[in-house]
């Protein structure tokens, strides 16, 4: 790993300003094979995640933003080892998850959970709320029937659902309530770390705020650590302590939320931020947008050098030849761009 040029060679220091690292991701890659022909031989690979390195500190929310297809959801899943990594390491509380399989990995699962995007699709329509929320308890053999029932009621109260609803089915709930059920299920085993994969993208605006507030309260109350994946840059600014920006399988910028939003260093981050509409007509009339041309290239055949160069408004020749290094340009503000200064 270390010999390869580019993002992921210089990892950020593990102990920064006394904060404890909970999850350490090093040079993580995930390639999906492209198969062809009747013998299904491999003709190429989708490089969904292509060498990323970052830490997640205890009790923080790390926001992961990017557009569709940039690999942010795959990152979340590989971090939890829902997909095996192609290369790289994920160290959780000192244990390298990528070396574990079978029972030892299963024993790690209670510590790390996931909240999914679509509460409609992630809840089994034939199971009652009670059995959905207690499934993790059954799976990991915790507690007798009575203890489990008490735990389910406690969890429903925790996510502000009426505990009387345990015998109802998911279709009897609205989208926001269904997402609360998903959150209760994720909390059942008292995890330390939760990957939130676009948890509010499928919800109406007025309901999004409810769910985000709930997630923030739970984090405070239970001391949770979140990896919060989203394409909504305004919401990420609200919820995240630090933010990583992904483009085509790479992290291009990582910084404290405030620093990233007030002084974005990567041209992609700058374009992304300028493209987000703000609900203020006077401000919108004055704003200058950076309009990117073209579309995101295919992750099966990414551009040479810097992956953003094909759409970058300031790209120079060097960008096609050399992959930019991952540099700490300001304290705690990392960027991968030749031209950023």
């Amino acid at each position: 790993m270390a010999a390869e040029a580019g993002i992921g060679t210089e990892a950020p220091a593990n102990e920064t300003a006394g904060r404890e690292v909970l999850v350490q991701v090093e040079g993580l890659k995930k390639y999906f094979p492209i198969m062809q022909g009747i013998f299904r031989h491999q003709v190429g690979a989708i490089r969904a995640v292509d060498g990323i390195t970052f830490d997640i500190f205890k009790r923080e929310t790390l926001g992961l933003v990017g557009e569709s297809g940039c690999g942010k959801s795959t990152t979340g899943r590989v971090v939890l080892q829902l997909y095996p990594a192609t290369a790289g390491r994920v160290v959780f509380n000192g244990t390298d998850l990528t070396r574990l399989t079978g029972e030892p990995l299963r024993r790690m699962r209670p510590h790390m959970q996931m909240i999914f995007q679509d509460p409609q699709a992630s809840l089994n329509p034939r199971m009652t709320v009670g059995s959905i929320v207690s499934e993790p308890l059954d799976e990991h053999g915790l507690g007798n029937t009575r203890a489990k029932r008490a735990r389910v009621e406690e969890l429903l109260e925790l996510v502000r659902l009426n505990p009387k609803y345990t015998n109802r089915y998911p279709h009897e709930f609205s989208g926001g309530q269904r997402q609360r059920i998903g959150i209760a299920r994720a909390l059942a085993l008292n995890p330390e770390f939760i990957v939130c994969d676009e948890p509010i993208a499928a919800l109406d605006v007025s309901i999004q705020a409810q769910v985000v507030n709930l997630l923030e309260e739970l984090q405070q109350g239970l001391g949770l650590t979140y990896l919060f994946i989203s394409h909504d840059l305004s919401m990420i600014r609200h919820i995240a302590d630090r933010v990583a920006v992904m483009y085509l399988g790479k992290i291009v910028e990582l910084a404290e939320s405030r620093s990233l939003y007030t002084e974005p260093l990567h041209p992609y981050t700058q374009a992304l931020l300028s493209a987000v509409p703000i609900h203020d007509p006077e401000l919108e009339a004055r704003r200058e947008r950076i309009i990117l041309t073209g579309d995101v290239p295919s992750p099966a055949d990414p551009p040479s050098g810097c992956r953003f160069r094909t759409r970058c408004p300031i790209a120079v020749e060097r960008c096609a030849q050399e992959e930019p290094l991952w540099r700490e340009l300001r304290p705690e503000h990392w960027v991968a761009c030749h031209l950023a200064e």
Partner: peptide, 23 residues
């Protein structure tokens, strides 16, 4: 609705207002 939305150009420390209840 306007208070439910966080703003890209503002620090996000305070609680989002949101609207209670269901559609």
């Amino acid at each position: 609705l306007l208070e439910s939305l966080p703003r890209l150009d503002e620090e996000g420390d305070e609680h989002l207002q949101g609207i209670e209840g269901q559609p």
